[in-house]
Amino acid sequence: MSYRLELKNITKQYPAVRANDDVSLHVLPGEIHAVLGENGAGKSTLMKIIFGAVKPDAGEIYFNDALVQVRSPQEARALGISMVFQHFSLFDTLTAAENVWLGLDKKWTLPEVIERIQAVSSDYGLEVDPWRPVHTLSVGERQRVEIVRALLTNPQLLILDEPTSVLTPQAVEKLFVTLRQLAERGCSILYISHKLDEIRALCHRCTVLRGGKVTGEVDPRQETNASLSRLMIGSEPPQLKRVAPVLGATALVVKNLNLAKQDPFGVNLQDICLQVQAGE
Rank of each mutant, 00 (worst) to 15 (best):
P220A: 07
I147E: 10
T136E: 11
L152K: 08
K241A: 12
S229C: 03
L5N: 08
N258Y: 08
A53Y: 07
P220D: 09
K12Y: 01
L79K: 06
A66G: 06
A244L: 09
V253H: 04
L36N: 09
E31N: 04
P133H: 07
A66Q: 15
V23Y: 00
L231N: 01
G59W: 14
K213N: 11
R200V: 09
L94W: 04
P237H: 13
A201P: 07
T207E: 05
P111F: 03
F265S: 00
V208R: 01
N154M: 14
V68L: 12
R116H: 02
L7S: 08
W101Y: 15
G37W: 04
D197I: 12
I233C: 02
G279S: 03
T93W: 04
Q181R: 15
V218Q: 09
A150C: 10
V148N: 02
W101Q: 06
H194Q: 13
S193K: 14
A260V: 09
L269Y: 09
A150I: 07
L46I: 03
V17K: 15
G186A: 08
H204N: 15
H204T: 11
T153Y: 14
C187K: 13
S72Q: 06
Q239N: 02
G40V: 00
C187V: 15
Y62S: 03
T164I: 12
A226W: 00
T168Y: 05
V148K: 07
L104H: 10
V145G: 05
P169V: 14
Q277R: 15
P237W: 11
E115M: 02
V113N: 11
K213H: 13
C203Q: 13
E127N: 11
P15C: 06
I117W: 01
D105E: 14
K241H: 13
P237V: 02
T164Q: 08
I159Y: 01
L110S: 05
G103T: 09
P245M: 08
L259C: 11
N225L: 09
